[in-house]
Amino acid sequence: MSNTAITEQAPINSATRGNQHGLLRGKRHYLLLAPGVFWMLVFLVLPLLMMVYVSFWTQSTFAVSPDLTIKSWVAFFSSDTYFGALIRTLRIWLTVLALTLVIGYPTALFIGQFVRNKNTQTVLLVTCVVPFWTSFLIRVLAWRPMLGKEGAINILLQKFGITSQPIEVLLFTELSVVIGMVQIYVVFMVGPIAFMLARIDESLIEAARDLGASAWTIFRKIILPLSMPGVVVGAIFVSVMVLGEFATASALSGRKVNLLGNIILTQVGSLKWAFAAVIGVVLTVVMAIVITGLLRVVNLRREL
């Protein structure tokens, strides 16, 4: 959604330019939009509307009928299981977002500001993506022998006598889900921030130093504000992916931690289409709010 907001600008610009160049006369340049608009209408807008519609259908045990009702909506908001899943999803999203920021920002700061060689910068950023060379499932499942009761971390802790008992909360808990997600998504935070930081001209920092600002002031007043677009873009990436997550949660929580994504999956599995649609709408609305909120933080159009 954020992407459409940003990329909207480009076709309009090139269209006016096309006009000036006389490449396409009159209003014909709008034809350029036709394939994209058609695709989005048929495969995004229509299904979205359909989802909203279906969420008001009547659900019986094995079938849905198009008789409008708000029963599924009432069921969602009155059930601890489902409303709790919404709260849990939001909690895990915020935790993961905060952790990716706390871990990602210093890394990005190092790569973007302290590595002056462009090649080294590229190498370091590529290194961040190395985990993506294996499949998603393997990457997630690899956490099990790592975090398990007899996993690597517990063995090491006991071997060095730091703990006497294996720590059981490491795996099949919310913690393991958070650990798994942070590891996967932190790179989406590092990339955009490092990119913005690398664009900050060294002379700005020198100018600020010469004007008497201390290192901390320079970070707060110059570096941080100038990197905010990167933080926002990174946060949008992470948010969109975490809010819709289900695979990490089911693989690392032993099905104990159910996010909205997991519930959609089980509801669709048991053919509860109306109920799945309710959650789908809720999730879409949450994402829209989150992205709108993040975009409010920084005027991306001005900064990028």
């Binding site: 700005l204 004007l211 110059i222």
Partner: peptide, 23 residues
Amino acid sequence: KYALFPHLTIFENVAFGLRNRQT
């Protein structure tokens, strides 16, 4: 290259040193 702070207004650029200097 002037090295003006692009995220600040002209006024804020000029006031930067007065407000943010350490001493």
